[in-house]
Computed example of a mutant assay.
Amino acid sequence: MDRRNFLKYATLAGSSFALTSCIQGKNSKSQSELVPTASPVVVNEPLKVGFVYVGPVGDFGWTYSHDLGRREMEANLQDKVKTTFVENVSEGADAERVIRQLALDGNKLIFTTSFGYMNSKIKVAKDFPHVAFEHCRGYKLAANVGTYSGRFEEPHYLTGLIAGKMTKSNVIGFIGAHPIPEVIRGIGAFTQGLRTTNPQAKVRVMWVQNWYDPAKERDAAQALINLGADVLSQHTDSAAAIQLAAEKGIYAFGYNTDMSKFGAQAHLTSAINKWGKFYIDTALAVINNTWKPQAIWHGIAQSMVDISPMNPVIPSDVQQLVNTKRNQFIQGTANPFDGPVKDQKGVVRVPKGKVLDNKAQLEMDWYVEGIEGSIPKSKS
């Protein structure tokens, strides 16, 4: 399974509890006492940093967003770092070979950007105690292994607010990759935002069972349009939905990076990932010998996720509503899953005044009210 396979993760309850406690700043004693063994960088020599990518740099989605972060780190730290990356690395033996070679080549900090690299990374890390490893979407920590991810549900909620005001048919199409908690949570957050501004609107989901497959994503988008959708959203990696929306004269949201160039009139905004600040801060920590393994789950407040500039076609009052909610996310006074939250059967899952906690969000396997259909089994 690939980078964000929380299907396995959700079934590993013990691991889920550990990750959640780390996120909440309540690390267990064993984790809080982990001592990083990564050695300080030699003075006047650049820190060598390696990146392992699951997809092509030119996907304009997930991998592209990580590479933008790598380039931002280079631009900011200049001669303090020297980076390299390997793209299109599959999980399993190939991943272990690539990660090990990066360590052998002298990289003292290695970022692995696919969930499916987790076991390979842990295995290699044991053999290179003086290398710092960071794993995106994983949950296994070690003395020289940290994890990081973004609260993707926050920008999804904001795009939902917009969708509720821009739809005329009250049918929103959502293209999902794999039916795992991360994606289900994103669709749920989007729908919570949508129903805030338009309680009559419904979300229909098409699953492509793939992270990056432009042809399948386009077919799914077309199927959703055939079902009456006049606004499209996605938790997949290509710009196929934006391009089709532009052809059909409807609206769409991008994901991972700003996809406006693929259909400026159709593109309302994108839910984007911003890895640059984290990469810069992590590299500096290694350089200064202050790095330590942590389980990071950051949102808009920490500049790890956000939305791209909004299309001027969005009414000013709607833009103001979005900005207000965005500021509340930053201030920590709002959450995409503030109660009341009902499931699609009308059962109250989160009462008013409460919030869906981190553990429940990380294991989410149910649709919120407003989403039609059922969740299929993952084929991954």
Results as ranks from 00 to 15, higher is better:
R4S: 13
K8V: 02
A10P: 09
L12W: 14
A18I: 15
L19M: 14
T20G: 12
K26Y: 15
N27E: 15
S28P: 14
L34Q: 14
A38S: 05
S39L: 15
P56K: 06
P56Q: 10
V57D: 09
M73V: 00
E91H: 00
V98P: 00
I99N: 00
D105G: 02
D105R: 00
N107M: 10
D127V: 07
A142M: 02
G146L: 02
R151C: 11
E154G: 12
A163E: 11
G164K: 07
H178C: 03
R185C: 09
I187D: 04
A189L: 01
T191W: 01
Q200R: 03
A215D: 15
A220D: 02
Q222N: 13
L232Q: 08
S233V: 05
S233A: 15
K248M: 12
I250D: 10
M259Q: 14
K261M: 13
F278T: 03
T282N: 03
N289Q: 15
P293D: 10
H298C: 10
G299R: 03
M304S: 01
S308W: 04
L321V: 08
T333F: 12
T333R: 13
A334Y: 14
D343K: 04
K345S: 12
V348W: 09
V355N: 03
D357S: 13
N358Y: 12
M364P: 07
V368R: 06
G370H: 01
E372S: 11
